[in-house]
């Protein structure tokens, strides 16, 4: 994003963070849609994300 006027943020659009920030941690789990997400860091620092079928919600 260079030299362009910012548009009003929409709630359904990606929320931009500062340049260089990351959300990854060594291991972090979250649910997105039907998927369980596991975030890992490789030994060389690269991110690895594993997506698996999420367990059905408890009733």
């Amino acid at each position: 994003m260079v030299g362009k006027p910012a548009e009003p943020a929409r709630s359904d659009q990606p929320q931009r963070r500062g340049r260089g920030d990351t959300t990854e941690q060594d291991s972090e789990r979250e649910i997105v849609g039907p998927l369980e997400i596991e975030k890992l860091s490789k030994e060389d620092g690269r991110a690895l994300i594993l997506y698996s079928s999420a367990p059905p919600p408890r009733t």
Partner: peptide
């Protein structure tokens, strides 16, 4: 694994 995403080496 099912689906994996990683930073390109």
């Amino acid at each position: 694994f099912e689906i994996a995403v990683f930073d390109n080496r």
